[in-house]
Design a protein around this nucleic acid. Structure first.
Lengths: 201, 201
DNA sequence: AGCCCGATGTGAACGATGTCAAGATACGGG
DNA sequence: CCCGTATCTTGACATCGTTCACATCGGGCT
């Protein structure tokens, strides 16, 4: 088995790599199957040995986008201490990573949550990011930092809020700088007075 | 001035009408300039007398989508009494109308918040829906139903939450039925104990 | 009123795109 | 060593966005 099988070997992977780059740079609507193939150095129809459609290729790009979100959130949680303040900080870190992805990589973020997900992704339990958010919230609850009865359903509320803000800022409907205001408002709503004191310290 | 000026008169409006219908039915990505022109009964190039681009036409469709959102939220607020329970009900009604738009008209909703907004819309103050949300929240605050210090920034939090849930459900990442859970979670987070009692009654 | 000019629409054409069918080519197992 | 199969190329087709030259309507000026 030589390093490159036939002309390319892992053409599928190469196509997705380049497609991710072009989606990042130009937005998914301006990405062309022919353009991706040419950038890889291969004939346009070669792609049809690995993907049924242009849509199938774009679906793979969407999954890469989801993976990038998981990666960013995982990285944001890497550091941090063990006290209450650090627990609150982890929630902020998740939100900042999520919003930061949308801010730094708008085209890929938009595509990662576009109509191309339907074909491949599982339920919302499939996302690592969602599992990490639940762990952080459980931690806050265990520390008694959440208001009474606030925990059930809070994962969905927080996820929706952060995801929604990212989309709204992405559409230019509000300024990215409003993220601080959003996080403060979120924490004011979900934390006890003690937790709030820590968060605003 | 005859009823129809030249062959059509208000061709621009007719094109947008048909384009809105096709976006609704097929999703904005599958809408074709030629198809819209043919449905109106006009040559493809005729559209270029009224729109610079296909993108310009789609931008007009996006504005129609925003208007439809305003209309739905306005209609949801039409009825309702004057007591505290009705005030809380109006917040729920806004959220349900917003999510209902995404549920009933997924393609138009998605397009209304797509990249085509950048060209035409103003800041987030431009949306009537946003103004109505602020009025409802001010009313709740005036009635003392909001937790201490919760009002500043709450508009952005609520808007983000509802918008985010709509997007997440639209992507199939969670069930539409979770909307109830979301609304309960939101109210648990923002309302005082008294308000909560009313909301859950 | 009658002509003229601008607004509006038509038709044909060009380049680019997604997709497919048929043939060529290289890799890996017998 | 040879052959089947997976892989890639070539060429073609229909469709799409867009443009250009031209036709046609209709209101305003004298």
């Amino acid at each position: 088995m030589s390093r490159t099988r036939y002309h390319h070997g892992a053409l599928a992977e190469a196509l997705v790599d380049v497609a991710v780059g072009q989606v990042r740079a130009q937005g998914s609507e301006r990405v062309t199957l022919r353009g991706v193939a040419q950038a890889v150095g291969v004939s346009p129809s070669a792609a049809y040995n690995h993907f049924a459609d242009k849509d199938a290729l774009l679906a793979a790009v969407a999954l890469r986008g989801q993976a990038e979100l998981d990666r960013r959130i995982g990285a944001a949680l890497a550091a941090g201490g063990d006290d209450d303040a650090a627990a609150i900080g982890r929630l902020r870190a998740i939100a900042r990573a999520y919003i930061g992805f949308a801010h730094d990589d708008p085209n890929l973020f938009r595509h990662a949550f576009g109509p191309h997900l339907k074909g491949a992704a599982g339920g919302h339990g499939a996302s690592e990011a969602y599992a990490m958010l639940n762990a952080v919230l459980d931690d806050l609850d265990g520390r008694g930092l959440l208001r009474d009865g606030a925990r059930p359903g809070l994962d969905l509320v927080v996820w929706s809020t952060v995801h929604g803000f990212a989309g709204i800022a992405l559409d230019g409907l509000c300024a990215w700088e409003a993220a601080d205001e959003l996080l403060n408002g979120m924490e004011r709503a979900m934390l006890t007075a003690a937790g709030l004191g820590l968060a605003l310290r």
